[in-house]
Amino acid sequence: MRTLNLHTLAAMAAGAALAVADPAAASDPKGKEKCYGVAKAGENGCAAANGTHSCGGLSKVNYSGQEWKLVPGGSCEKMGGRLEPFEGPSPLDPASKKK
């Protein structure tokens, strides 16, 4: 295996260090601050929004009688919902009114 002699190694290492022209470039520039939580898509805490707020929007059926959401007490049946799960389409589903 070809190896570098010690002086070549040292010269190259020093050369590399000296070539990093401005030592300040290797440290954080002044006047900037770290800002978390503003990363753009693809560079961010990938899935936080998806994973932590995922429940809404994933149901495959609109107005399913098996789905529920919390509504103000007493307002459920006024809106056309029911207080127990039920089979079949909801009267709120526009698709069920077309026929």
């Binding site: 295996m1 070809r2 190896t3 570098l4 190694l9 010269a11 190259m12 290492a13 050369g15 590399a16 260090a17 070539a19 990093v20 470039a25 290797a26």
Partner: peptide
């Protein structure tokens, strides 16, 4: 560095280290 040279005889340690420092 010896392993890098074994992989690639044209390996340039100085410029590689410079890039890594930056």
């Amino acid at each position: 560095a010896a392993r890098a040279l074994a992989e690639d005889a044209a390996f340039d340690l100085e410029s590689a280290l410079r890039d890594h420092l930056i």
